[in-house]
Each structure stands twice: as structure tokens, then as C-alpha cells.
Design a protein around this nucleic acid. Structure first.
Lengths: 191, 191
DNA sequence: CCATGATGAGACAAAGATGTCTCACATGGA
DNA sequence: TCCATGTGAGACATCTTTGTCTCATCATGG
């Protein structure tokens, strides 16, 4: 049936286009629709057939980022075991999406008044909940608010993604650097 | 002499325009020249008389950011006393410029191939040098590279500035939150 | 009072991006 | 083979932003 082919084809292509766009916009957030199309190996006309406009594309990327974040949160099993281990699992699970997250994170800064996607609120809550759990169990210090720890995690993920993309940090160290700084800080502690 | 008046007037206005532009672009990085002009309380024509174009404006903002960073670095006396105290002084001194830094930090991400202003390299080196000093003195752990600690400091400053501007973190906590997370991390350590 | 110079308002063209449209082509199934 | 459908190429108008220009106004100092 043509309808089935249509559905499958669109789905596959849409995902491919989306990931190409993410890869490009991550590096050059002001890229043109034409550049996005070329990066995906399609024409601008076809790009417009998949996404009504630039806004629709960015919103689709946001939905993708949210979905990947939720998947990472699920995979990290935030409620299991020590909170610090959950943080390690979370950073590991979220690493593949870090560049996309960095793009969306800085993109969100310029939606001044606009209401942000409710998906982010949910994600924020889950991450903040993890830090709160760690505080309640005595693992984490209580003088740093869960909201700030969440924000700091986003900032470190973005910094890490950028540092890796510019060669200032080795890709293989991404996980370690972020987790160790977030959990342990720069100070050398006496064991 | 008209030349003296001209010079003084231009200098004063230029600084005022620059700071208005920084305040606006910090919140809305895609603001129009017209919006920048209105924010500064001048007309677009006058804005163009001060800065040849948008590029010139951004480059002037970059120069301002670099100058404020260098001033903060000087004021923090990075070579005096324990490195951790120097970090505290640095964050305190750089706080007023944090929002501008956040704007320039994310702005720099989209100059893909372009060579970045040499001033940043110098600043990076001074900050990395501070972390290196802390490592040499045994204060800081040596498994986190100075380059990463520098990058992380930028990321936390940006996150902190954004979190404050969106009301997620109280302005008075900015300094404490950043310094404590950067130095001590989230883990509760036994004293 | 007058002249100089900065300013604001607005017109104007140029450039870039976007969204829409048409048409030719190719591929894959009936 | 024939038809349908997705695609690429490109034309096209539109919109936004930008940079430049002119002209009237206003303030300041001589």
C-alpha cells in the first residue's frame, strides 16, 4: 500500500533530517534552511515538505531533545541505589544527546517571555528530584539547592560538549570530567 | 575646543550604549540594531554613528568583555595566597560581567572556523594557570585538567547568570553557588 | 544672536532568508 | 508500459534587517 510506504518513508527520512539538522545547528546555530537541507542531503523544497518552517524544525528538534532526555532519565534509573551513582549513570546516558542539549539550552535563552515546552519542566523536576533525594539521604550537601545543581548540570553538559567539539577536552574524558567536577569539585579532598 | 567635547561626549555615550547593548543582548541575543538603539535610548542613526554595523558592535562588546575580564583577573590577584581563595576572589570580581560573558561565550560558539580574539586566549591562559598553580600546590586534584576547569568555570558562570536572570537562583547566592560547586562539588564531604 | 555639530525621524536601496509555487525527472508498483 | 508519488532545481514574491542618506531640530559655546 502506498500509504504504508509513505508513512515509513516519511518517518525514516524525518528522523535522518532531524539528526542532520541537530548536528549542524549544534555547531552553527544560525544555519540557514538551505544549509540545513544541504547537510541532510536533500533540497530545500523537500525540507519544507517535512517541516513547515524554521520554527517547526526547531520545535521538532526540541521534541527530539526532550525525548532523548526522558529516555536517558529512564535508562539511568534515578531512584535506584546511591544518588551519586544515579548521577553517573545519568551523565553517561545523556552524553550522546549533550550537543543537542547544548544547542537547545542556549536557544531557550532567547525565548525571553515565551512559555517553554512543558517537557523541560518535567525533566527539570526529575533531575532536581534526584539531587533532592541525594540531599535527603545525606550524600549531597544541602547548601546547594537542587534547582542550582540541575542548572549547573546543564551548564557543565553544554560546556563539555563545546569543549569536546573544539578539541579542548578529549571525547573519552567527557563523562569523567563532568561527573567528577559536579560531584567532587576541584578541591583535593582528604580520604 | 570642539574636538575635546567631541571626544568626551563620544566616549561617555559609547560606553553607555555599549552597556545597554550588553544588557539587552544578554537577554535576547538576536535583538535588532533598532532594538539595541531603543534600549540605549538613541536612534538607529546615532547607533550607526558610534558603531559601523552589527559586527562592529559585537566586536566592541567582546573588547569590553575582555577588558572587564582582565580587570577582574587583576583585581583577584591570582598569584596571592591559596589558589582556592584566588578562585573565590575571581568569581566575586567577575560576577558583574557574568551576563556579558555568558552572551559572548554562547556567541563564540557560532564562529565555527573563525579565529577568536587573542584576548580570550590570554584570559584562558591566566585562569588555567591559576588552576595549574592549585594543582602544583596540592590544593586541587590533578585528574581534572586546567583546561577543563577553565571551561567549566565559564559554563558555571553562564549557567549562574541565566539562572539568576530567570529567577531560579537568588542573585545574592550567585557567588556562593558557583564557587562552592566548582571547588567542593555536590558531594557532602567528611571534614 | 549665530554657528557648529550631534541628534532623531524617516526614506531608500541592497542583501539575505523564508515560504510558495511550478515543472521536469526518477523510481517503484500495478 | 503506465501511473503515481516523492524529489530536486529553480523562479518568484515577501519580509526583515541592514547600511546609507537627507533634512529638520536642538543644544551649546562663542
Amino acid at each position: 500500500m502506498s500509504h504504508m510506504d509513505y508513512g515509513c518513508l516519511m518517518a525514516v527520512d524525518r528522523d535522518h533530517v532531524l539528526r542532520s539538522a541537530a548536528a549542524l545547528l549544534t555547531r552553527k546555530s544560525t544555519a540557514t534552511m538551505d544549509e540545513v537541507a544541504k547537510a541532510a542531503g536533500i533540497s530545500r523544497a523537500t525540507l519544507h515538505r517535512h517541516f513547515a518552517g524554521r520554527d517547526a524544525l526547531v520545535r521538532a528538534l526540541e521534541a527530539l531533545g526532550i525525548a532523548e532526555c526522558e529516555a536517558a532519565l529512564d535508562a539511568a534509573r534515578l531512584d535506584d541505589g546511591p544518588a551519586s551513582d544515579a548521577v553517573r549513570r545519568l551523565v553517561g546516558a545523556i552524553e550522546p544527546a549533550a550537543a543537542l542539549l547544548a544547542f537547545l539550552y542556549s536557544e531557550n535563552q532567547l525565548f525571553e517571555g515565551e512559555e517553554q515546552n512543558a517537557g523541560w519542566t518535567r525533566i527539570d523536576d526529575r533531575i532536581a528530584g534526584l539531587f533532592r533525594r541525594g540531599q535527603a539521604s545525606g550524600e549531597f550537601r544541602i547548601d546547594l539547592t537542587p534547582a542550582w545543581l540541575t542548572e549547573a548540570l546543564y551548564g557543565l553538559l553544554a560546556s563539555g560538549a563545546w569543549a569536546v567539539s573544539e578539541g579542548r577536552v578529549a571525547s573519552k574524558d567527557f563523562n569523567y570530567m563532568i561527573v567528577e567536577l559536579l560531584l567532587g569539585g576541584a578541591l583535593r579532598t582528604a580520604y
